[in-house]
């Protein structure tokens, strides 16, 4: 298998909270344009892995290389890195003091130093993409969960990221709202954006992913293409996990 240089490479990542070792040894590569889905049981380290990639948690050991550079090196321009790596949260985390449009313009204006006009134009286009154009002036607390999550996605892509992280984006949503968010994510997948998605939506994962990783007990237990991972997993643990969803 010939591989180009990966956009992001995790090497033997470890994370310890006090005495509790959440991540024991996480390693994987993701190529430009690839979509990777992370599945696994609760408490297995999926979200922590994702939060380590964006340095919302500081790893205790290991390397995270972005375009070959270790972001954990002292003196690395962390805020510039974060501007290139977007994140969509389980709880949306929209800025509740800002309206929908401002949520999408504040990052580009403050961090990317774009002009207000340019930021607004991009934001409007992205909000149209997620179907939130009618709600530009609405405050987050006036919106439903699904609507808030779509705004959060628009906010993330307004930063024009190279890599987009999704931390269980549909877990906090009522079932009827899950699809509107997944539809938006499929649209994004089609644009060729590199994405890492932590999710329990296996049908969706099968449809969009290039590779699926099964993280359990703080290690990448098994990884592969959707066909292999979902139809013929090697490990008993993976099979057992999948059975919950097929039952």
């Amino acid at each position: 298998m010939t591989k180009t240089k990966p956009i992001l490479s995790l090497q033997h990542l470890q994370k310890q909270f006090g005495q509790h070792q959440v991540l024991k040894d996480i390693s994987f590569d993701i190529q430009q344009g690839e979509i990777m889905t992370i599945i696994g049981p609760s408490g297995g380290g999926k979200s922590t892995t994702l939060r380590c990639i964006n340095l919302l948690e500081k790893p205790t050991a290991g390397k995270i290389c972005f375009h070959g550079e270790n972001i954990l090196d002292p003196g690395y321009q962390l805020n510039r890195y974060r501007a290139k790596v977007g994140m969509v949260f389980q709880q949306f985390n929209l800025f509740i003091n800002k309206n929908v449009l401002e949520n999408c313009t504040i990052g580009p204006e403050l961090v990317l130093k774009k002009s207000p006009e340019e930021a607004k134009a991009t934001a409007r286009a992205n909000l149209k993409l997620v179907g939130m154009s009618p709600y530009l002036d609405a405050k987050p607390n006036q919106l439903s969960g699904g609507q808030q999550q779509r705004v959060a996605i628009a906010r993330a892509i307004s930063m024009d990221p190279e890599l987009l992280l999704f931390d269980e984006p549909t877990s906090a949503l009522d079932p009827e709202m899950v699809n509107e968010v997944l539809t938006v994510m499929k649209k994004l997948a089609a644009t060729g954006l590199t994405m890492i998605i932590v999710t329990h939506e296996l049908t969706f994962a099968k449809e969009v992913s290039d590779q699926i990783a099964f993280i359990s007990g703080g290690v990448v237990a098994e990884a592969g293409t959707p066909a292999v991972m979902l139809e013929h997993p090697k490990l008993e643990a993976t099979r057992k996990f999948l059975r919950h969803f097929n039952a």
Binding site: N54, L56, R80, A83, F89, K98, I106, G107, V111, M159
Partner: peptide, 23 residues
């Protein structure tokens, strides 16, 4: 202030003062 507000602002790449002042 909810932790999520800090995290969302950090994830966009805002500095401490930007985070404080605007969010």
């Amino acid at each position: 202030t909810p932790q999520g507000q800090f995290e969302a602002a950090s994830a966009i790449g805002m500095s401490h003062s930007q985070k404080m002042w605007h969010i």
